[in-house]
Design a protein around this nucleic acid. Structure first.
Length: 667
RNA sequence: GCCCUCGUAGCUCAGUUAGGAUAGAGCACCGGUUUCCUAAACCGGGUGCCGCAAGUUCGAAUCUUGCCGGGGGCACCA
């Protein structure tokens, strides 16, 4: 695994420290805690700024006067600044570009291919749970987010020195497989399955639901099939295993196209044999308890929920006997389970009485599926962890009244395995925002169970269509592979007339098309919903992945033509020769790269990097049209600009690679 | 009903973490730039009660409260 060097601090940090030091020296030590060095907005004309308002309040002084005092008393000579001025309560610092340029260049020359990295993650392990599609269901654009955001975080954290483990928690077990088996048994088309496995399986699933409405025997058959599957019936197991294999193979094709990979792909089925112990331990420790299920009202909500607390303790004391009566209305073909359920339809089936736990790895042993025996023989009883006293409205259920397990049970087993196996400092769950409540419950549960590991839900919004959320049943769904093919085709249109080999053109179209799709997702705040727009997802210009790639190829082309491959060898390089606005603006952007990465990691927000790279590319494009490099007026200017271009090329390529986007050299 | 979340230009979005100076992009639309390193580019053109209202503050798109609107969730789905 790649080891990032420990960086003591980049130039911009040093310069900021000096600005802070200057103000503290004049205004006193007390200032240290009340000032912050900012990057001022473009129109101001300064390079750094320190607002004095917070300090003014503490010292009961006029911020304008203080700013003026600093500006008057300080002699900037010898510092990184050539001018320090006061304006409206701000102290504004103007870089002495001769000195600062050198610092920025030295940073880059010293760090080389590690420029932008840091050692802050050294010695720490992070597990990232991302992608997690369900088998027997095609990859839709809904699966895109977890996949690309997770992969970007993976790359970013590794660059910061963490040991990172990517785990694809495949949804490969659940009630829905009984239905698919039953459907395949009746209408299975071997040819269709071979041609497009997940779509064929989805068709079966959809047809099952269509027909089941009129033919109740289907549901019975589904339960029988699932029972057979969990009992280790040869035919059922073989079919399930085959569906699983075919699905995974298909996913692998998409992951290859996306450039996404995992250290582990452990499906839910992998954990089934541990479930019994997990539930028993929770009971033994007193954290979990037997409970009855309360009544539901017509909306499917628990009766009496939301009443004043303190009325009889935990709200697990509802009357027994009630069964949800709305399961069929809620059944939804979109919800075939897994982490991704919400992106393509939220409601899962609630007729889960046929669901069972026990399952070992493919083709392996099974147990009865019963996690723990109910001592009172009351099949209406469930095992749950009450959470009402922690201000969490619903308890976390670990075992259903028929003795079978749930998603959360497998989740506990999964976490236990991860902790034992990898000893992480942190586990990131890159899962849709609609599962926020679930994770709140789950995290409280593991705290109560004494599992000591920092777990973070990294939520993201849904991808919605303009007319509403995606729905397979209504035919409102976009398959990722279709989107990617279309994007690649469009990119191919542009590259068609270039003077390149067919092979090159194909490769470029692929890189550009995929970049367009990934960037469209990664450039937006992950917490917000995305309104799906074909045009935007495949954009080849403007704020888009291809725009960044294009900026890179322009830089790469200059480097290629210059014949230089190591800017350390440039004899006439003189950073202080770069004085044009386009040059200093570009350098200033390059200098921000390290801190942008840290911020992105701190908030788990790759879009910081995407937005930064776009801004950098814009600045570079302006530089490109205004400043000739290879035909620069003097050798010094030429070499210096060449170095600037090399730095830009590096940052764009590296930044894109952190986002999981590859760059062609030509396009 | 309760909880979470979002609301910024015609459209799609940055900016909210940490209050700070004149709120920025892209798309679309109109016009311009190619004897010169790739025009997937660049330049010019804005028409915003930053959902509404109050509060805190020297200062609010940013923090607090309420309301309105969209989305999501709310015990045996995942």
């Amino acid at each position: 695994m790649y080891n990032a060097p420990t960086m003591k601090g980049y130039a911009l940090e040093k310069i900021r420290d000096e600005a802070r030091g200057i103000v503290v020296a004049i205004l006193g030590q007390e200032a240290a805690e009340h000032i912050r060095v900012e990057l001022p907005p473009p129109g101001i004309g300064a390079d750094l700024a320190i607002p004095l308002f917070p300090l003014a309040k503490v010292l009961r002084r006029n911020p304008n006067e203080m700013a003026s005092e600093v500006a008057e008393k300080v002699d900037p000579s010898g510092s990184y600044f050539d001018q320090i001025s006061a304006a409206k309560g701000f102290v504004n610092f103007h870089f002495d570009w001769k000195q600062c340029n050198k610092l920025f260049f030295d940073d880059f020359l010293a760090a080389g291919d590690a420029y932008g990295s840091a050692g802050i993650g050294s010695g720490k392990t992070v597990v990232i749970d991302y992608s997690a599609p369900n088998i027997a269901k095609p990859f839709s654009v809904g699966h895109l987010r977890s996949t690309v955001i997770g992969q970007a975080l993976y790359n970013i954290l590794i660059f910061l020195g963490y040991t990172v483990i990517g785990d694809n928690h495949i949804g490969d077990w659940g009630t829905q497989f009984g239905k698919i088996l039953a459907a395949y048994d009746r209408w299975g088309d071997e040819k269709a399955l071979e041609e497009s496995p997940t779509r064929a399986l989805l068709d079966l699933y959809v047809r099952f639901h269509e027909d089941a409405a009129a033919d109740p025997s289907l549901e019975v058959a589904a339960r029988e099939w699932f029972a057979k599957l969990e009992a280790g019936d040869d035919k059922a197991t073989q079919l399930w295993s085959r569906f699983r294999e075919l699905s995974l193979r298909e996913f692998e094709r998409i992951y290859d196209l996306l450039g996404v990979s995992f250290d582990h792909t452990l499906g839910e089925s992998f954990y089934n044999e541990r479930l019994k112990d997990i539930v028993q331990q929770a009971l033994d420790s007193g954290v979990a308890q037997w409970s009855t299920v309360p009544d539901k009202d017509e909306e499917g909500r628990v009766a009496g929920k939301g009443r004043a607390s303190g009325e009889g303790g935990a709200d697990d004391d509802g009357s027994a006997g009630g069964k949800g009566g709305t399961s069929e209305e809620k059944a939804n073909v979109d919800a075939t389970g897994g982490r991704d359920s919400a992106n393509t339809g939220s409601r899962a089936e609630t007729d889960g009485r046929t669901e069972a736990g026990g399952r070992t790895e493919a083709g392996g042993r099974t147990n009865t599926g019963s996690c723990a025996e109910a001592e009172v023989g009351d099949d209406e009883k469930v095992i749950l962890i009450p959470l009402a006293k922690y201000d969490i409205s619903a308890p976390l259920i670990l075992q259903k009244s028929d003795g079978t397990s749930l998603y959360a049970t497998r989740e506990l087993a999964t976490l236990e395995h991860r902790v034992a196996e990898w000893k992480p400092h942190e586990v990131l769950y890159v899962v849709g925002a609609e599962q926020s409540l679930y994770f709140t419950q789950f995290f409280k549960a593991i705290e109560l169970l004494g599992i000591k590991v920092k777990c973070v839900h990294v939520p993201f919004g849904m991808i919605r269509l303009p007319e509403g959320r995606m729905s397979t049943r209504k035919g409102r769904v976009i398959f990722l592979e279709d989107l990617l093919s279309e994007a690649i085709e469009r990119a191919g249109e542009i590259v068609k007339d270039r003077d390149l080999s067919d092979e090159e053109k194909q490769e470029i179209a692929r890189l550009v098309g995929v970049a367009a799709v990934k960037y469209a997702d990664l450039s937006q705040d992950r917490t917000k919903d995305i309104v799906f727009d074909w045009k935007k997802m495949m954009a080849l210009e403007g704020n888009s992945g291809p725009y960044l790639q294009y900026a890179y190829t322009r830089a790469a082309s200059i480097m290629r033509k210059s014949g230089e491959d190591d800017i350390g060898d440039l004899e006439d390089l003189d950073p202080s020769a770069l004085t044009e606005d386009e040059e200093t603006a570009l350098l200033r952007e390059i200098a921000r790269f390290p801190e942008v990465i840290k911020q992105a990691a701190g908030d788990y927000k790759p879009n910081y990097i995407a937005n930064y790279l776009f801004s950098l590319s814009q600045v570079f494009n302006r530089f490109y049209v205004n400043c000739a490099v290879l035909k620069a007026e003097t050798p010094v200017l030429k070499d210096s600009r060449l170095a600037l271009v090399a730095m830009t090329a590096y940052v764009i390529r590296k930044g894109l690679s952190l986002l999981g986007i590859d760059c062609p050299e030509k396009m």
